[in-house]
Every structure is written in C-alpha cells, then in structure tokens.
C-alpha cells in the first residue's frame, strides 16, 4: 500500500470531502493563500476557489462563532484554529455555542462544524503547546477526535465532516510529517470505536497521538524483559470507547494512561474514574497516570522534555504494574 504523511492525509480528506459536497467550506488564518501555517491546506484555494477556501482575521471568536452560524444554515464549515490552545480564546463559541446551540433550542438545529486544532508540545511556549482535549471531553455537545496515524487522520476527518454534530479535531503537530500506509479512496472510521495497537497480557496502556508513539517504543523495550504491554488507542475521546478498554483490562488487570495534557482532571482522570465505576473488579493493581505535571509548557526544549511523559517513565510504571 502507498504511504503518505499525516499532514497529506488531512489535506486529502479535506479535498475529497470538498469535492464530494459543495456545502463544505474551509477557512482560518493563513489557510488560503499561504496553504496553512503548517502547510496542511496547500492547493485547496487553487482547487476550490476563494468562495470556499478563505483566510480569516485573527478573530477566533468569530471564526468559530461563524462556523456555528454557517452550520445551522446548512453549510459544513471546517475551521482551522492554528493552535489547539486557542479553544480557550474562542471558549464561548466552542463550549457555549457549538456545544449547546442545538440543545438550548430544543433540537431545532444541526451543527455540522469541524474545528481543526493543531496541538502538542513543540517548544512554542505556554500558549502554543498544549493538548487541551480534556476541556472538550468535559463539555457536553462536542465530539473529540485524536487521530494517531495518517490513515486514521484521513478517515476520521472525512467522518467528522459528514457528522451533523460539532467535532473538535486534534491534529498533533509532531505527527504531521509521520508517514503511514493510507488506503486510496473513500474510507471513513466511526467515532467511539478505539483500536488495540498492540496485544499483550500484563498491562493495558491507553495512549494516543504523540504519546502513542512513545508507548509503542516502551512496549518494544519491555518485550525484551518479558513484559507484554497491550496498547489501546481510543481514536476519539468523545465518545470514548470504554467497552474495548474494559475488555483489555479484564485480560491484563492493570491500566496506565499516558497523555500530553495536564494531569489534574485530565483525560486520564476520567478514564481512571470509568474503570473505578465499571471495571473495579478486574483491576488487580492501582490505576496509574502519566501526564504533564500541572505546570504550563515552557518554551525551551530541555524544560519541555522534562515534563513530557518519557519512554523511560512509561517503562518504569509498566514494570511496577507488571511486577
């Protein structure tokens, strides 16, 4: 099968969906003439024209708010926010408008909006580095996708554009150049269905995006020590595929969540609570988390590396859980 990068896969998904449906529009700062600050939307302006692909001002509130308005009137807007951190700049529009417009108007509207959110620590400073999925997972009305491979990025984005609900689509910047096999043609993936990336008997590790690549490395190292790690990639956090996770935990009896968001009330905290409530009897070791230790992401690399969960840290916790 052919291989393309995660970034190219997103570009292909956008192009194919815009080709398929004339109501899909794309806008954001730098997405049109420049092709996106991360080069993801290159060529789309030329192909689909300025009526459907256009630049916006640095106005995150109206970027997302207009997306809600366009969506309730029948368009399928895809908005790029450049940095996932900016969901907090557009907080009213994401959490109170996109998430609630349908609900508070008694189901009269559909909100088929996709907000693309490049995320992750790249040394861009405290306000341009985070993985703020937990805010989205916390908030009713929003769907949350966290694709980890090029194939998943393409299939989940195509699905997101077709869904009639607002999707926060996290794209990890450290994955943009990562190449994977991606099937040609119209492939989508359902939301709420995770995947076991690696099978193992001793410990279940939940990880996605950049932390998934670290978890996979850790699992390879641990294999040499006789520790078999099972790795679960949820693919979407809202909805979250707790069923597949619980089946895995039934087998391993131990669970570690590795995430790039803040630890306190993070995604891992929620997953831990799900396991306490629904799978307590299957856990024979304490639930564990590795996450950003509740400090902002600094700008320089040594400080960033200090707080990101490392392969070594993942190995250490897995050893404890497997002991």
């Amino acid at each position: 099968m052919r291989t393309i990068s995660y970034g190219q896969a997103i570009n292909e998904a956008l192009a194919e969906e815009m080709d398929r449906d004339g109501d899909v529009i794309l806008y954001g700062l730098d997405v049109a003439a420049w092709g996106g600050i991360f080069n993801i939307t290159k060529g789309l302006l030329e192909r689909f024209g300025p009526e459907r692909v256009f630049d916006s001002p640095i106005s995150e509130s109206v970027m997302v708010g207009a997306g809600v308005g366009a969506a309730i009137m029948g368009l399928r807007p895809v908005v790029e926010l450049q940095y996932a951190d900016f969901i907090l700049v557009a907080g009213d529009e994401i959490f109170l408008k996109a998430g609630m417009w349908r609900y508070m108007h008694g189901g009269a509207f559909k909100v088929p909006l996709v907000v693309r959110l490049p995320s992750g620590a790249t040394g861009a400073g405290p306000e341009h580095s985070t993985c703020p999925e937990a805010y989205v997972m916390h908030s009713p009305g929003l769907l949350c996708a966290v694709p980890s491979t090029a194939a998943d990025a393409k299939a989940l984005l195509k699905e997101a554009i077709r869904l009639d609900n607002p999707v926060m689509f996290f794209e990890h910047r450290r994955l943009y150049q990562k190449r994977d096999e991606v099937p040609e043609g119209d492939v989508t993936l359902p939301f709420g269905k995770g995947v076991i990336r690696r099978e193992g008997r001793h410990v279940t590790v939940v990880a996605w995006q950049y932390m998934l690549s670290r978890a996979l490395k850790a699992a390879e190292l641990l294999e040499q020590e006789g520790i078999e790690v099972e790795i679960f990639d949820p693919r979407t956090l809202s909805p979250f595929d707790s069923g597949t996770l619980i089946e895995s935990v039934k087998k391993t009896g131990a669970c570690l969540v590795v995430e790039e968001g803040y630890r306190r009330l993070g995604v891992g905290a929620e997953i831990g609570a799900i396991l306490m409530e629904q799978a307590f009897g299957y856990l024979d070791r304490p639930f564990r988390r590795l996450a950003i230790p509740d400090v902002p992401m600094a700008s320089v690399k040594p400080l960033v590396d200090r707080v990101l969960p490392s392969v070594e840290a993942i190995c250490d916790v897995c050893r404890e859980l497997a002991a």
Binding site: S61, V62, A66, V68, L75, E93, M104, G106
Partner: peptide, 30 residues
Amino acid sequence: MHVVDLPNGIYGESGTLGGGLVVSVGMGMA
C-alpha cells in the same frame, strides 16, 4: 431566552449576550 420558530424566521438567541453577533456572521455566509 431560546425561543425558536424556524417557519417564522426566529433562529433563537445566544444566552451569553453578544454571543449571537459572531453566529450571525456565519448565517450571512451561508
């Protein structure tokens, strides 16, 4: 606060005051 009556063109309201201003932009785009 959120009366909706689409046949008569009533598209509701933002509960956060001024929240509808940005929504109306997208409605105009559509």
